[in-house]
Computed example of a mutant assay.
Amino acid sequence: MLRNYCKLLQIHVRKCAVPHHAAAGVRHKTTIQYAARPDMPKLAYRKLKGKSPGVVFLPGFASNMGGLKAEALEEFCKSLGHSYLRFDYSGCGSSEGEMKNFNIGAWKKDVLYVLDELVEGPQILVGSSMGGWLMLLAALSRPERIAALVGISTAADHFVTAFHALPIETKKEVEEQGSWKFPTKHNEEGFYTLSVDFLKEAENHCVLHSPIPMSCPVRLIHGLKDSDVPWHVSMQVAERVLSNDIDVILRKHGLHRMSEKDDIKLMVYTIDDLIDKLTTLG
Score class of each variant (00 low, 15 high):
93 G>A: 09
143 P>K: 01
127 G>S: 04
176 E>C: 06
117 E>F: 11
59 P>H: 08
39 D>S: 13
71 E>K: 11
254 G>E: 02
25 G>A: 13
61 F>H: 02
265 K>L: 15
116 D>V: 03
41 P>D: 05
194 L>E: 02
201 E>K: 11
281 L>V: 09
152 I>Q: 00
251 R>E: 14
181 K>W: 13
264 I>K: 05
172 K>G: 03
271 I>E: 00
115 L>D: 08
172 K>Q: 12
188 E>T: 10
75 E>I: 06
210 S>R: 15
239 E>A: 13
269 Y>T: 15
279 T>P: 06
154 T>Y: 04
261 K>A: 15
207 V>K: 06
212 I>H: 10
129 S>H: 06
85 L>A: 09
49 K>N: 14
8 L>C: 03
83 S>V: 03
37 R>P: 00
256 H>P: 04
154 T>G: 04
183 P>G: 07
126 V>P: 00
20 H>M: 14
30 T>V: 12
48 L>V: 07
152 I>L: 05
223 G>N: 07
142 R>N: 09
159 F>R: 00
263 D>Y: 03
87 F>D: 02
171 K>C: 06
110 D>T: 04
85 L>N: 05
28 H>L: 15
36 A>F: 14
157 D>N: 01
265 K>S: 15
190 G>S: 09
86 R>H: 09
109 K>D: 14
153 S>I: 06
243 S>C: 10
50 G>N: 06
99 M>K: 10
23 A>H: 05
93 G>P: 04
5 Y>W: 12
18 V>A: 13
157 D>W: 05
30 T>M: 15
219 R>K: 15
198 F>M: 06
161 T>D: 05
206 C>Y: 10
195 S>Q: 05
81 G>T: 11
95 S>T: 12
257 R>W: 05
170 T>P: 00
120 E>Y: 01
56 V>H: 04
79 S>Q: 12
36 A>D: 14
215 S>H: 13
96 E>D: 11
135 M>F: 10
128 S>N: 10
207 V>E: 02
167 P>V: 07
183 P>F: 02
196 V>C: 08
214 M>Q: 06
194 L>S: 03
180 W>T: 01
228 D>S: 12
277 K>Y: 08
80 L>H: 01
83 S>L: 04
59 P>F: 11
188 E>I: 11
109 K>T: 13
163 F>V: 03
143 P>L: 04
244 N>D: 12
130 M>N: 02
105 G>S: 10
139 A>S: 06
259 S>M: 14
47 K>S: 11
144 E>I: 04
166 L>R: 04
119 V>R: 08
217 P>I: 10
85 L>R: 07
68 L>E: 06
192 Y>R: 01
64 N>S: 14
86 R>L: 02
21 H>N: 15
2 L>Y: 12
162 A>Y: 09
20 H>S: 15
22 A>K: 08
210 S>D: 11
252 K>F: 14
125 L>N: 01
58 L>A: 04
187 N>P: 12
152 I>P: 00
3 R>N: 13
